[in-house]
Amino acid sequence: MSTRRLIVGITGASGAAYGIRALELARAAGMETHLVVSRSALLTLNQELGLQKADLEGRADVIYPVADIGATIASGSFRTMGMLIAPCSVRTMSEIATGVTSTLMSRAADVVLKERRRLVLMLRETPLHLGHIETMAALTRMGAIVMPPVPAFYARPQSIDELVTHSSARALDLFDIDTGAVRRWGGLKDSLLT
């Protein structure tokens, strides 16, 4: 049985490109990918990327309807490396933190946490109020990693695509999936301080 499986969730927060790129990079690295997309994410995918539901076919090994609470990824006996939610909305983050799972998205994330597997949330919200921060702290204590997609300007990106690729590949790094797409920090070349 393959355990090189990764669940990818895409929610309705802005930044649908992060989830799509993560899927592409994970599959290129030989991962078996399992995708769940929220209803709101379908709107965002269309608005931001011009993608329709049919355009998702073939982008993952398995695609689940968000209402399918009987899906394999809803059970801890289905072994995975964990789950990346990219982007992650505050609503989804809050559902996961409370354990009140109303969709396959939050149920799969809850299963990942209970099985002590890696859960990475590319939270897309700013500015943050205290409730958001406390929810992030609670999830961190539960074992999740909150990773807002913050651009790495040291890599001198030349396009939005490069920014998206770097952040998505860094998220996959957290699962020990080396995509070869990260321009690694090599230290300062010429220091102005000397």
Rank of each mutant, 00 (worst) to 15 (best):
S2M: 11
T3Q: 12
R5L: 09
R5S: 09
L6G: 02
I7V: 15
I7N: 03
I7P: 00
I10W: 05
A13G: 07
G15N: 06
A17P: 00
Y18M: 08
G19L: 06
I20S: 04
E24R: 14
A26P: 02
R27H: 02
R27E: 00
R27G: 01
A28G: 10
G30R: 04
E32K: 13
L35P: 00
L35Q: 02
S38F: 05
R39T: 14
R39D: 10
S40T: 09
S40Q: 06
S40C: 03
A41S: 08
T44H: 03
N46K: 14
E48I: 06
Q52F: 15
A54W: 11
E57H: 10
G58H: 07
R59M: 15
A60P: 01
Y64I: 08
V66S: 02
V66N: 03
A67V: 15
A67N: 13
I73F: 12
A74Y: 13
A74V: 15
S75L: 11
G76I: 09
S77T: 15
F78M: 05
R79P: 03
R79Y: 07
M81E: 05
G82L: 04
G82V: 08
G82P: 01
L84N: 00
P87L: 06
P87M: 07
V90K: 06
R91T: 13
T92F: 09
M93L: 14
S94R: 08
S94H: 07
S94T: 14
S94G: 10
I96T: 10
A97M: 11
G99N: 12
T103I: 05
M105H: 11
A108K: 08
A108Y: 08
D110E: 12
V112S: 06
L113T: 11
E115F: 05
M122E: 03
L123I: 14
R124H: 08
P127Q: 02
G131C: 09
G131M: 13
H132C: 11
M136Q: 11
M136L: 12
A138C: 14
L139C: 07
T140M: 11
R141I: 15
R141V: 15
M142A: 14
I145S: 09
I145P: 00
V146F: 11
V146P: 01
M147I: 10
P149K: 08
V150M: 15
A155C: 07
A155W: 00
R156S: 12
P157Y: 01
Q158L: 13
D161L: 05
D161W: 05
D161R: 13
E162M: 02
L163F: 04
V164E: 00
T165C: 00
H166W: 07
H166I: 00
S168Y: 07
D173M: 03
L174I: 09
F175Y: 10
D176E: 14
I177L: 04
T179P: 02
T179V: 14
G180E: 09
G180H: 13
G180P: 06
G180C: 13
A181I: 09
R183Y: 00
R184E: 14
G186L: 06
K189C: 01
K189V: 12
D190G: 07
D190C: 05
S191W: 13
S191E: 12
L193P: 00
